[in-house]
């Protein structure tokens, strides 16, 4: 099956006083049509930078896509001129953001904001726009949509706002939805509703979803495949059930252990020792070795190659015995 999105060797750099920092370093992954792929990692692992890079939203004054290809439906988005990129954004790739309060313009009504992408891409005539807005709000499960369209973002609850954001992202029927931490700012009960909604819409509209999150529970609920990021690099990738059942990279193992709540409640919370290194001070070789329980001298010597086994990938020397180089 040919991929809808094929990211290869994507590198994103940000300028700092100390020189360029690689927030994303040679990351590759694919998304098939209709598939849900999750990118997980801690803060600063580069997962949000990937989301922004896909739509070329990295602020020009502070950073850039320094290398790699982003093939979407046969076109390389990384090389597309800006005006052509504008026709991709919103129309063929939609995006929802972490904090729906911040992602809505406080001075405009809900109806007007959802109508914006419709009119922008000319998908409906102006006089039909509000009917379509009501349809979209009904689709995302907002009750009494005819009244909501006249309200302002601050009149709505967090969950309702996120539904409005989703309606905006879906307005032009995108083939890929990028969800950047879509539930982080929401209550736990609302989180579940929003995730269920995204999942249902995905099936109904046949779009693919790229989910950016740090929440492994969310990943296991909705994603088919997972990409694990650490310090700007992809450390592991594979089908969610296989990766979670038998993680190949020590970092993935640490993440899963840290989020495992099934143990004795009196026991100390399990954690990965140490902290994520600053991008300016990445260690030589594998960037995880200073925190890795299985570190060996050769981990320091060179960056581990990516190894493959079936649909799975991992960049760790310890996977060598069972896996072959990809």
């Amino acid at each position: 099956m040919s991929a809808l999105l094929r990211v290869s060797d994507l590198t994103v750099e940000y300028d700092t006083l100390g020189g360029a920092l690689r927030a994303v370093d040679g990351v590759s992954f694919t998304i098939a049509p209709g598939e849900t792929v999750a990118i997980v990692g801690e803060s600063g692992s580069g997962k949000s930078s990937i989301a922004h890079a896909l739509l070329r939203l990295i602020p020009r004054a502070s950073g850039r896509i320094a290398g790699g290809r982003i093939e979407f439906a046969g076109e390389d988005l990384a090389a597309l001129p800006e005006h052509a990129m504008r026709r991709v954004r919103g129309a063929r790739i939609g995006m929802i953001f972490q904090d729906p309060m911040m992602a809505l313009n406080p001075v405009y009504t809900i109806g007007r904001q959802i109508a914006e992408p419709l009119l922008l891409h000319g998908s409906v005539p102006v006089r039909r726009a509000m009917d379509r807005v009501v349809e979209l709000l009904t689709l995302v499960g907002v009750p009494a949509p005819e009244e909501r369209i006249r309200q302002y973002p601050h009149n709505l609850s967090g969950g309702m706002r996120q539904r409005v954001m989703i309606a905006m992202a879906l307005a032009s029927g995108p083939r890929l939805l990028i969800a950047d931490e879509p539930t982080t700012a929401l209550d736990v009960t609302v989180q579940a509703q929003v995730l269920a909604l995204v999942d249902e819409l995905k099936a109904r509209l046949g779009m693919a979803v790229l989910l950016i999150t740090h929440d492994l529970a969310v990943v296991s609920e909705v994603a088919a495949r997972v990409v694990v990021m650490y310090a700007g690099r992809k450390v592991e990738e594979g089908p969610v059930n296989e990766v979670f059942a038998d993680p190949a990279h020590p970092y993935t193992r640490g993440l899963l252990a840290a989020s495992d709540w099934s143990g004795d409640p009196r026991e100390r919370l399990r954690e990965i020792p140490g902290t994520v290194p600053a991008l300016a001070e990445l260690p030589e070789g594998c960037s995880f070795w200073p925190r890795c329980p299985d570190a060996e001298p050769r981990c320091r010597a060179a960056r581990p190659a990516e190894l493959a086994s079936g649909a799975r990938r991992a960049s760790c020397v310890h996977a060598e015995r069972i896996w072959r180089p990809s």
Partner: peptide, 14 residues
């Protein structure tokens, strides 16, 4: 720098 501006750009506004 606010998200709503990113959101507008993400929907293809100039």
């Amino acid at each position: 720098g606010r998200d709503y501006v990113d959101a507008c750009r993400a929907m293809g506004m100039s």
